[in-house]
């Protein structure tokens, strides 16, 4: 039962992720992105990571892709230009992508026989927070500096041009 659900949702995620790249029209791509992130969240749920799954929906599907869609709509990029690629490029791309997939599949199916199997535990919020404040405290705190720099950087990129020079802020 669990395997069936896993298979279904993995397929769903992969197909919608492919849809992001293959859709005609950027808004469809964004929509497929939401669906694939949603699928990922459900996969997390299947492995017992309920907190991460909800956070995934909240942040990725609920905020980040919204901003994607904003930009797409503001720039009004609906119709992609249909530049037909030369057929030789198509063949080369197809061969290399399929070849890569084949290699990866062979490698994966052979290599992981000896892997330690890990039982998925139910990752409760309490457990996550305990880890976050003991073992992973350092990256957690360091991220604040990163976010600070990010905010400054975003401000730099997005601040309005000033017409008149030298007005004090």
């Amino acid at each position: 039962m669990k395997e069936a659900a896993f298979a279904f949702f993995s397929l769903f995620t992969l197909l919608t992720a492919a849809g992001v790249v293959l859709s005609r029209g950027v808004v469809y791509s964004a929509f497929n992105l939401v669906l694939s992130l949603f699928g990922l969240a459900i996969l997390y749920l299947l492995w017992g990571a309920s907190f991460i799954s909800m956070i995934q929906i909240l942040i990725y599907a609920g905020a980040i892709v919204v901003l994607f869609v904003f930009v797409v709509m503001l720039l009004n990029l609906e119709k992609p230009q249909d530049i037909a690629p030369p057929w030789i490029r198509g063949i080369l791309t197809g061969v290399s992508v399929w070849g890569l997939c084949f290699i990866l599949l062979r490698v994966f199916s052979r290599s992981f026989g000896e892997m330690p199997s890990v039982e998925p535990q139910k990752a409760s919020v309490r457990m996550i927070s305990q880890l976050l404040f003991s073992q992973y405290l350092w990256p957690f705190e360091i991220l604040t500096v990163f976010l600070l720099a990010l905010i400054v950087g975003i401000y730099m990129l997005a601040r309005p041009e000033r017409e008149t020079p030298h007005e004090s802020p």
């Binding site: 990256p139 360091i142 500096v145 990163f146 720099a149 990010l150 950087g153 975003i154 730099m156």
Partner: peptide, 17 residues
Amino acid sequence: LMLYIAIETVSIISFVL
């Protein structure tokens, strides 16, 4: 994890710079 955070910090600030 630390490596990835550090690389991302440097990368993203580099984009802005």
